[in-house]
Design a protein around this nucleic acid. Structure first.
Lengths: 171, 171
DNA sequence: CGACATATTGATAGACCTCAAGAGAAGTGG
DNA sequence: CCACTTCTCTTGAGGTCTATCAATATGTCG
């Protein structure tokens, strides 16, 4: 039996999964939470690189790329588990904003503009928080001038670096 | 943009993931938290059945089975996210015990015996709880006669059905 | 402009964490 | 086999963060 551990720094750990005989465990790479594998008892583990899982000469958007994206999905899921298991409301909101910045942010003279297609409720349901807590955290960040808000769906990230620091990740 | 929602009953929802253009999203099946997909804005979504991802005539333990197990890993990760995002300490511990029962439980005249290879700290790090909370919850369950403990690693599940109810899942 | 949904703000309560002490289990060496 | 040490687990008291409940404000759309 082995455990897959995500490291959040400062002795904070999130065990993403336990694996038993016969299980396949995907160790995420290229995520902001470093992961390591530890045996809890004598174990035999076979390692495969995801690169080696499928044929080399890849057709454009073939099975290989599909597998890559499935593994990316799994990586985000691990990241979410670490966030939900070990982070404060402040860190969750900042982590969420940082991820949204990476995925749908538009640069515009210094700031990064986010047009969020989801409501506060949906943000809360994603981060394991209530809408009130989401709202209060955004207010705090606004008062710290880390972000600015405009209407319901637009958030301008004024201090991306500060946000990353508040997100409490390692990277 | 679409959202993948896990339903925990009683209006509790965990949004497992948001997906943007080009993303692949795995919708878990055969997990205890039912998941549904919702569009947040006009979207075009292509659906693939995991069965159709790889060649039919499967060699024993070939690529097809490997993919199945990767998807199983992802399913457990989604389940963990729902647990971490929306469940109380009591529900987390019971959910954990139910999963361990399924994976390493031995039946023995009525009860189910668990020899847990992990420490309280590791259970806590998995469930997003402190060791103290884990310990207190186990004490409560012992006092309710849902479980019995013997030494550090052995837990006997006396009331599997009651445990499932306390786990707060839908299935 | 008016009506409704969504978001913000405030007051309170509760679940879980933190800190601290003690009990129990497991290993070591005589 | 029994001290002795060490680590893990349990139990208790108090504090903190977030949820809950309630009211108000703001945004959106007809």
């Amino acid at each position: 039996m082995v455990k897959l551990v995500g490291h959040l720094g400062a002795d904070r750990e999130q065990i993403a999964a336990f694996a038993f005989e016969g299980d396949v465990l995907v160790v995420p790479a290229h995520v902001s939470t470093p992961h390591t594998l530890h045996a809890l008892e004598d174990s035999v583990v076979h390692f495969l690189r995801s690169d080696d899982l499928l044929p080399k000469g890849r057709p454009a958007m073939g099975a290989g790329q599909l597998l890559d994206r499935i593994l990316a999905d799994l990586g985000r899921s691990r990241e979410l588990s670490a966030l939900l298991g070990r982070k404060s409301a402040r860190e969750r909101i900042c982590g969420f904003l940082v991820e949204m910045e990476k995925r749908i942010g538009r640069r515009e003279n210094g700031a990064v503009i986010l047009d969020l297609p989801m409501s506060r409720r949906e943000i809360g349901d994603h981060l394991g928080l209530t809408i009130e807590t989401v709202s209060r955290q955004l207010t705090d960040l606004r008062e710290r001038s880390a972000i600015a808000t405009c209407g319901r769906s637009r958030i301008d990230i004024l201090d991306p670096q500060g946000l990353r620091a508040l997100a409490g990740s390692v990277d």
